[in-house]
Nucleic acid binder design. Structure first.
Lengths: 212, 212
DNA sequence: ACAGACGCTGAACGTGCGTATAGCCTCTTA
DNA sequence: TAAGAGGCTATACGCACGTTCAGCGTCTGT
């Protein structure tokens, strides 16, 4: 019964969890061995299973820790919702991540793993964020900050997916445009162009447009 | 010296490669064993290494096969470039994938893995597609089909990344909107809304907009 | 001071992996 | 028909993995 000590994260147990989080994010669960995690945390392999029961238990603990970190973005997003509804800037998941996590944090990469491995935790996270995006867009539509969507479900998915794509393809985007998009400078440059497309559009309407 | 027989893909070697492609796409290279690939192909494990030298050799062969399949999309995109420049519909990577690969093809999932693992092949593919997107947008800008971008490099990355996101988050999007976006029906519904945003925009311009 | 618990280590165990090897069966070629 | 090559299998080997276990030091409560 140690329900008090797990908040104070200065212990070896926390070191193991942090090392595992970083290694899992970098290389994936299967490609990381318990011995590597132990070495990175400066402890023996036996201590890992002593604290977490098994490698799978460690994975669950890391998942829970990351999920808590990501859910803390919800509260922040709740108050961002009001400012976003003014419509004067683009409040995105990527911007939230940049503001919430310091440079070099393994959490964006861990988020990427969650989505790309079809992890149930990732699916649940996507579902919550999708519902949030949908509600946000509905609210903004009522206020008149965004146009009425032809297909609200798809548009909410489109917006969310575009934000997440910046996290998922961070490295490739950085190589393409020369700036890491998950840095303050990078996200600013990204947001400027995205806002332009989202407000003014990009394609010129063709003269032969079908009314349908 | 068997440089003739490797085109005719009815052999056990091709079966092994196809089984490996499917399993690699579904679960990742490391999570799949040579014994599983052999069982899926209906051969013995020894035959895998006999034909491909090692598991890494098999991986390279599968990579080359997939790269060839994806590069074949280039030619198709070359002739799509002309139709896309008319501006009457949204020619995207996702639409190309839907048209090029039958339902249940492992190639979209394999593409997802390529990007997930920071594979050099994935980085190269992204680079080529980015250059293509950039050129396409430049051409369309000259013709007047799209507005002049404030930041052309970022806008090209934004467009490409949005398309790829549909591939990367296919399952999550399917769960959210109720339709697999990589089916003809799904991509049609997706394209309609995306085209609407790309042409008319989504956000209403706020009265207090900073010029700067 | 003593006893129990806890954090932690180092060595060991069993398993499943990728790979090597020896040999079988079936074609082809002369 | 004899001989050789190549597709293919069965078995086994060595290794690295996750996990177990006996035991060490230290800290805490009585």
């Amino acid at each position: 019964m140690c329900s008090v000590a797990d908040d104070r994260d200065l212990t070896a147990k926390a070191n193991i969890r942090n090392a595992a989080l970083r290694l899992f994010a970098e290389r994936g669960h299967d490609a990381v061995t318990v011995r590597e995690i132990a070495a990175a945390a400066g402890v023996s392999p036996g201590l890992v299973v002593h604290h977490f029961g098994s490698k799978e238990g460690l994975r669950a603990a890391v998942d829970a820790y990351a999920a808590q970190a990501f859910d803390s973005l919800f509260a922040m997003d709740g108050q961002d919702l009001a400012s976003a509804m003014t419509g004067d800037n683009w409040g995105s998941v990527a911007e939230m991540l940049v503001r919430a996590f310091p440079h070099g944090s393994p959490l964006p990469a861990y988020l990427r793993r969650l989505f790309l491995v079809n992890d149930p935790a990732g699916a649940a996270l996507f579902g919550r964020w999708y519902a949030l995006t949908r509600r946000l867009l509905d609210s903004m539509t009522e206020v008149g900050a965004v146009r009425q969507a032809e297909d609200p479900a798809v548009r909410a998915a489109f917006f969310l997916v575009n934000d997440l794509a910046l996290v998922l393809l961070r490295n490739q985007v950085a190589a393409a445009i020369g700036v890491d998009p998950l840095t303050p400078e990078g996200v600013a440059r990204w947001a400027q162009e995205v806002t332009a497309v989202y407000t003014k559009g990009a394609f010129v309407i063709a003269p032969s447009e079908e009314p349908s």
